[in-house]
């Protein structure tokens, strides 16, 4: 009961804060929610892998970058719209992710956690520098008309397109929740995440489940790569910062808590937008995720010492 009451208080405080911000600086709310959607949509696949396969994938953002490059070249070659590329990108990246998983990560599952960290760090470098080697560090962008659609309410005018990320993030969280609680495969994945040995004893193919979950996560991030292309310019290092921010969001929500990532993203997105609203503070916005993750780590270690 105590936990529920505290959550209710937190939610109420959050709503009050949002209303105050909305009345005082409506653009902060709009831009904050838009970037929160983007952060959440990128962080959720990482949370999925971390929660079930228990691997911190430092190449997470790089998978998105690779998918974005693949969609970019597919779209410029065929004149296709990046939106149509979302599903093919997801499928192709899933295959690529599964291949990378089978060739590298699967072999390191039994080795110490920190080896896995170095391994995925090596993957991240290989992907970003490989793209740099093949396509140079030049930024690339596809300009689309519908992206610049804007809405005017009173004196307020803002872009509407980035709200797509909010819907995608919500759909991802809801879809994954349904998948993990309603389908047999999803339930099996959840069981493997909680206790791989126990799951193996009751007859779940742990190795297959890991591969499946990794492929599913890379599929989601691959689709995001194509979607990301609609709005932003891409370059080899574009994914890196998202890896860091995604991890901080997953850590804030608590590993295994996918809906919690949505809340954490709103917190991060709004605080960044709030900082950007002030001229003198603008440059400091990118430091917030670090402050948040430090706060989370401190909170955990204090709680750990008490018990």
């Amino acid at each position: 009961m105590a936990i529920k009451r505290r959550t209710a208080i937190l939610v109420a405080l959050g709503i009050v804060a949002a209303v105050v911000v909305a009345l005082w600086k409506p653009t902060v709310l709009i831009y904050g929610m838009q970037s929160a959607g983007l952060y959440a949509a990128i962080a959720i696949p990482m949370g999925l892998v971390l929660g079930i396969v228990h691997i911190v994938n430092l190449a997470h953002g790089e998978f998105m970058m690779v998918a974005a490059y693949a969609s970019y070249f597919a779209c410029t070659a065929s004149g296709m719209d990046p939106l149509l590329a979302v599903l093919p990108a997801a499928a192709v990246t899933a295959g690529f992710g599964l291949l990378v998983y089978k060739l590298t990560i699967r072999r390191a599952l039994k080795s110490p956690e920190l080896n896995q960290l170095i391994l995925t760090f090596g993957l991240a470098i290989t992907f970003s520098q490989g793209v740099n080697l093949l396509f140079s560090s030049q930024t690339r962008k596809i300009s689309l008309e519908y992206v610049s659609a804007s809405l005017t309410i009173g004196e307020l005018s803002f872009g509407v397109w980035p709200f797509v990320f909010v819907f995608v993030a919500g759909a991802m969280a809801y879809g994954l929740k349904l998948f993990l609680t309603r389908t047999t495969t999803g339930k099996a994945a959840l069981a493997v995440g909680q206790n791989p040995r126990g799951a193996a004893i009751v007859g779940i193919d742990v190795d297959r489940t890991y591969g499946l979950v990794f492929a599913l996560a890379t599929a989601l991030i691959g689709g995001m790569g194509a979607l990301f292309l609609t709005r932003s310019a891409i370059f080899p290092g574009v994914g890196g910062p998202f890896t860091m921010k995604s991890f901080s969001l997953v850590a804030m929500a608590g590993i295994g808590n996918i809906p919690g990532i949505l809340g954490a993203s709103v917190l991060l997105g709004l605080s960044e937008a709030l900082m950007r609203a002030f001229r003198g503070l603008r440059g400091w916005a990118d430091i917030i995720f670090f402050v948040l993750i430090m706060a989370v780590i401190l909170g955990r270690s204090i709680k750990g010492r008490k018990s």
Binding site: T104, R107, A108, S111, N115, I118, L119, F121, G122, L123, A124, I125, T126, F127, Q129, G130, N132, L133, L134, S136, S137
Partner: peptide, 19 residues
């Protein structure tokens, strides 16, 4: 440009095959 890819590959190979 991009010669750093070699280091990424070295890291992966060492971790997997010659820890």
């Amino acid at each position: 440009y991009g010669h750093l890819v070699v280091y990424g590959v070295i890291i992966i190979i060492v971790i997997l095959f010659i820890p």
